[in-house]
């Protein structure tokens, strides 16, 4: 018969193991943050430069960088406001750009579900392309380990993101014209995509997703990514069902 009472040494061992797990999660978060940040800095700077070029309020946009925490949506909003679009139209268009957050929320929902209430309400704010992609690459992290990982990853990305927007604003007057700068972020996404193309449904998802996104964006730029993502997932589901 085994005792259900935990001996002090067991409790100490469990606490030590939990601490080690959290420390490991923190180390993984720092590693993953270093992986994605080089691709984010140029995009943040581009947003900062655009804010200055359009004459938008720098402080509001800097706070917005942290509050929206989605570069493409904010860039869309800044550009459309500058073109004189109505406020509702600006918010709706920029929201469509970020609609993929719904899909990320669905994909990561299970990881947040068993967490404390405060974490479930506040931590999803850190969901963006990069944090989603890094987190799905760490499927074994759960509980306190996931909380630690997510806080460190999201916090680091947020700090660097807002700093790079500020840097872009500060350097805007002396920056040379770099029209291809956003492609540095694209290089990061290509680098993250290629290793995932290991099975047929993933390849189909990428091919269909890329094609539909490109075609849609020529007609309706704001809806390109979400259309591609949905089409890619549906195609992958069809292939995996038939295969």
């Amino acid at each position: 018969m085994t005792s259900t009472l935990m001996r002090p040494s067991d409790a100490t061992a469990d606490a030590t193991a939990a601490h080690t797990g959290v420390a490991t999660a923190r180390r993984l978060a720092r590693h993953d943050a270093r992986t994605v940040l080089p691709g984010m800095v140029p995009f943040g700077m581009l947003l900062g430069v655009t804010v200055v070029a359009t004459g938008a309020d720098r402080l509001v946009e800097l706070v917005g960088g942290a509050a929206i925490y989605g570069g493409s949506a904010q860039l869309t909003a800044v550009t459309l406001l500058d073109r004189g679009l109505a406020l509702t139209a600006v918010v709706l268009t920029a929201a469509v750009v970020n609609a993929r957050l719904l899909l990320y929320s669905a994909a990561l929902g299970e990881r947040f579900r068993a967490q404390p209430r405060v974490f479930r309400w506040l931590a999803p704010h850190f969901i963006i392309d990069q944090t989603y992609l890094m987190a799905v690459g760490r499927p074994t992290l759960a509980g306190a380990e996931f909380r630690s990982y997510w806080r460190w990853l999201g916090g680091a990305v947020l700090v660097v993101w807002t700093t790079s927007i500020g840097l872009g604003m500060a350097l805007a007057p002396v920056m040379p014209s770099l029209p291809h700068l956003p492609l540095i972020g694209t290089a990061l996404f290509i680098g993250l995509l290629v290793p995932r193309l290991t099975e047929r449904p993933a390849i189909v998802a990428a091919l269909v997703g890329g094609t539909v996104a490109a075609l849609t964006s020529t007609v309706l730029p704001a809806a390109g990514i979400i259309a591609g993502a949905v089409a890619g997932v549906v195609a992958a589901m069809a292939v995996s069902r038939n295969g």
């Binding site: 694209t186 995509l193 539909v212 996104a213 490109a214 549906v234």
Partner: peptide, 24 residues
Amino acid sequence: VQHGLTYLAPAVLAGIAAVELTGM
């Protein structure tokens, strides 16, 4: 749908890259 979401990453990555290139 839950199973399909496992393929969200390649779909969205290819979508972002394609949209950026098209816009460029």
